[in-house]
Computed example of a mutant assay.
Amino acid sequence: MNKRHFGFLIFFLTAAGLFAEGQLPVQTRFSFPKSIRAGDVAEVVIWSPHNLELNEAALENAQGKVLDRAQTFAVPAADLPEGLANHVEAALLATDALSPDQTATFVVFNAQKTEVERSEVQIVHRTFPTEIVHLNPVMTKLREYPNRVERHQAESIWKIYLTNDADCVFQTGLYALPFSFQPRRSALFGDSRTYVYSNGKSSTTYHRGYDFAVPRGTPVLASGRGRVVMARFREMTGGTVVIEHLPGLYSDYFHMDRLDVHVGQLVRQGDKLGLSGATGLVTGPHLHWEFRLHGYSVDGERLLKEGILDKERLAKLFSTAER
């Protein structure tokens, strides 16, 4: 992570006239990443001295296929660096963790669905460790033969993941680990995982978050401000809490023994959500922690180290633009 290079392209629009069809106000500035790793969050940020009438941003591959798209949302003035309390909008876009090396393009559209800006980006492929997980007969049945309840629960959580509410802007800046200490990580984001079933069969997938090997009963904390959109026990993930932080961005906390929050509750970073455990499809006590953006699993490590729409990064970004 420390070697990761974050570059930005700043575009100055100097065309005469305001709000002509297909144009944005003079002095509007865009920032796009030059490169992003597969499985990371990409930030598209637009600044203007005027109120913008933007609609959405998209990420397209070289063939024009849309890899992800999202509504733009207004960044609250309180979350902006000093001197930048004008009109700042952003969109968060996700890349698949298994994406190959490829050149893609960011495209921004206004409220009339007219394209107003585009910029190329390099998506960088990642390689991940492999692991083998042996399942007993009970866990084999859970994974290999999903029942009606599991299917219904999967549909319910996917409905949440695919919700993108532009008014839900709770947590910008750095996110935090779900514990008050540094836990041991027993599985990492992106691990190629082969499940070996008790009947001799197997299946391969990849790990969509981090597993923390902590004793049952360890307090689990919210990684950022947000609204609880799920707090229930599920067949596969056991005691489950899902928090909405930004439009389309959610954090998940799985396999908990006890839940101390309810749906609709607003939580602050560091608030207690419940106690870790060993419920659902598990081979031992741990907490599974992950982030989802528009349904894509994204690497939480990036949110811990660099945050989302971090004030310091925005200040450097736009101060450079002004020079």
Rank of each mutant, 00 (worst) to 15 (best):
S186N: 11
Y161C: 00
P146V: 06
Y161E: 04
T283W: 02
L84E: 15
G7Y: 11
P33S: 12
N2L: 13
V228M: 08
D165C: 10
V169R: 10
R126W: 03
G307E: 09
L13Q: 08
V169A: 02
T103N: 05
S156C: 01
N164D: 15
P247A: 05
G248A: 05
Q112N: 11
H286G: 09
V116T: 06
C168Y: 03
P129K: 11
L266T: 07
P219W: 10
L93G: 06
P33E: 07
T72S: 13
R216N: 03
L18F: 04
D68W: 07
S35G: 08
E120D: 13
Q102V: 00
V108S: 11
L174K: 11
Y195L: 08
F254S: 04
A278F: 09
F106S: 09
S203K: 04
P285N: 04
A74E: 14
G284D: 11
A16T: 03
L9M: 12
V66W: 12
E89V: 12
T172H: 05
L293N: 13
I123V: 14
R126I: 00
A77M: 08
H255L: 07
P137D: 12
G83S: 03
D40M: 04
P100H: 09
I160V: 15
Y145M: 11
E155D: 10
Y145D: 14
K65N: 14
V88Y: 10
S99H: 05
F318Y: 14
G190R: 03
L13N: 13
V196H: 06
L174P: 03
V282N: 00
D257T: 14
D167K: 12
V229D: 10
K316M: 02
Y206D: 01
L314H: 13
A278N: 15
C168V: 05
L287D: 09
S180A: 15
L281V: 05
S297W: 07
G264K: 11
G274N: 06
L80P: 08
N86I: 11
P49H: 06
E82W: 05
T283V: 03
D68T: 05
H262S: 11
P25K: 11
T105D: 00
S203I: 00
F212C: 07
V241R: 08
E60Q: 12
I36V: 15
A104N: 06
R118E: 01
F73C: 09
Y145C: 09
E235S: 15
R302V: 10
L309Y: 09
Y210S: 02
G300T: 00
L174R: 13
G17Y: 13
P76D: 07
L13T: 04
L13V: 02
R323L: 08
L162F: 12
R323A: 13
A74W: 05
S202R: 11
V138T: 06
G277K: 08
S35T: 05
V108H: 00
H134N: 12
Y145V: 15
A78I: 14
A78M: 13
A94Y: 03
F181H: 13
I46K: 03
H125I: 04
E117C: 08
H245P: 00
I46N: 08
Q265F: 01
G270M: 06
L13I: 00
G307K: 03
Q23H: 12
L98P: 02
L275N: 02
V263F: 07
A321L: 00
L303S: 07
